[in-house]
Every structure is written in structure tokens, then in C-alpha cells.
Simulated assay, not measured.
Amino acid sequence: MRVTLYPTAESLEQAFLAGGTAVVFDVLRATSTIVTALAHGCRGVVTVVDPAEAQEVAARLAGGNIPVLLAGERGGEKIPGFPHGNSPLEFRPEVVGGRMLVLTTSNGTRALNLAAGRAGTVLVGSLLNARAVAREACRLGRDVILACAGTQGEFSLEDALGAGMVVLEMMKMADPGWLYCPTPGASGLDLSDFAVAALHLALAYKDNPRRAFDHSLHGRKLFSMGLAADLDWCASLNTCEVVPVVGEGKEIIPGCPVIVRS
């Protein structure tokens, strides 16, 4: 099984994803928010790139008597006029249960929508569900594309870490003794160089993923904005079994990806 990593959303624009399983990461915070919302009973998440379009989509859902929440951020801040931002802590069960979430973010929703139009299956990854995502990717048995959103077109340490944690779990599933005797090629996985680099990030931070956010540019920014609780939540490794998948329920909003629990 080939495992390839793309470090930014921009790199996905020319990527060949057809027939593979893509896993999208925007660890701080869009994909962590999506995983959390679905784990807490959200009916589905519609990802939209443009804020004005997100408002239109939410209005169409509400007009169809579908309970809906509108959420979005730019630069880490809640979009003015939007009821919700991009903090996973906002989407408690009593808030999100049974509702559709319409979400637009600076980086993550763009990466998700790019992947949705190109890959056979698109999963949503984070530190929260890394093991569950790895298990599903192995079950599907196709080549895996790890798609990191990045931040404003630049590499993001936390997204590569999320991807690396999935690679680490896949390695352990393919060869349970690999971690103790890491012989190259023994797992049967064919890793690209970026995937190897992400794996070694995971090995470096596996005992304290939260520390990676102290080292990452975007993590430090969110901390300076008073969002330490978000960072703590997003660093919770393998605490969730939910594997969000893109595509089910597309008929709800034609032309917009809808993410649901697999």
C-alpha cells in the first residue's frame, strides 16, 4: 500500500488522488472540530470555502426545516455575524445534537473540498481519531493520500503530526512488532519521503502531542489568543472512534460536500 503525504492544500491542486483514500488534516482546528461535532451527535457537516456561500447554504437548510448551525473563522477569529466560530469546545452535545453544521474556515474547508472532488474516499483526520482513521484506511485497502491543509499556503507542524500519527498506527497494525524493531519495509507500507518525515514527527511527539502545539507557529498564535483550552482538546490522542467521511448525503445540498459518520 502506497502512503503519500501532501503538505498543504495548494499542493492538492495538482495531485492525482483518483481511486485512493484521502485523509484530510487541519488539526488546529477544523478537522478536530468536525470530529468533535459528529461525535457529539451532529447530523452532518457541510464544508464551504466562502463565508457568504456558507450563509446561503445555512439559510437553504433552515428553509427546508433542517435544524442548522452556522460556524466559521478567519485568522482564528469567529467571523462577524456568525453564531459560532471554529472551536471544538463550542459544539457540545446539547448544542449540536441532531443539527447540520455549516462550516467555513481559513484552511481546512478548502482542503476538504479540494480532496472531495478528487479522491475516491475522503476521511477526516485529527489527533483525536488517528487510530480509528488508520484502521479504516487499512480496511479499505487502497493507496492512502494524507492531505494536510497547512496555514495560508505554508507547512504546518500540527497537520504533519496528525498525518504522522495515522502512519504510525498503520505501521503498528501492519506489523505489531514494528515499533520495537523498525526494519524498513517490514510493514508492507510504501511511504513517500514526506510520509516518513511525518512518521518521525509522530515518534518524537507520541508521548506528549500537546508539546507540538507549543512548537508550531499556529499553535503559538492560538495560545496567544487565549485558546489554550482548544489546544488541549485538539491534542487528545486517540480519544475518539468516530471516522468522518465525505460524500454521504450529498443530496442535502447539491454541489456541497457533506461529512457524516462512517
Rank of each mutant, 00 (worst) to 15 (best):
N113G: 05
L114C: 05
L114H: 00
A115T: 10
A115P: 10
A116V: 07
G117C: 11
A119Y: 06
G120M: 05
G120S: 09
G120V: 03
T121S: 10
T121E: 13
T121W: 03
V122R: 01
V122Q: 02
L123A: 07
L123S: 06
V124M: 09
G125R: 00
S126V: 09
L128V: 04
N129A: 07
A130E: 00
R131Y: 01
A132W: 02
A132K: 04
A132H: 06
V133F: 01
R135K: 13
E136L: 11
A137F: 10
A137L: 08
R139A: 15
G141F: 12
G141N: 11
G141R: 12
D143P: 15
I145F: 11
I145W: 11
L146Y: 00
A147C: 15
A149V: 12
T151F: 04
Q152C: 03
E154N: 10
E154T: 08
E154Y: 13
F155H: 06
F155T: 04
F155Q: 04
S156T: 08
L157H: 04
L157E: 04
L157Q: 01
L157Y: 05
E158S: 04
D159R: 03
A160V: 01
L161D: 05
A163L: 05
A163K: 02
A163R: 02
G164E: 07
V166Q: 02
V166T: 14
L168I: 02
L168V: 01
L168M: 14
L168Q: 06
M170G: 04
M170Q: 10
K172R: 15
A174T: 05
A174D: 01
A174R: 13
D175W: 00
G177L: 06
G177D: 11
W178K: 02
Y180E: 13
Y180V: 12
Y180T: 12
C181D: 13
C181N: 13
C181R: 13
C181L: 10
P182T: 10
P182D: 11
T183A: 12
T183V: 13
P184F: 12
P184Q: 11
P184R: 08
S187K: 00
S187T: 14
S187Q: 05
G188C: 12
G188M: 11
D190N: 11
L191Q: 02
S192G: 15
S192C: 09
F194V: 00
A195D: 08
A195Y: 14
A195N: 08
A195T: 09
V196D: 02
V196Y: 02
V196Q: 10
A197H: 04
A198F: 11
L199V: 06
L199N: 01
H200C: 10
H200F: 14
A202D: 07
L203A: 08
A204W: 05
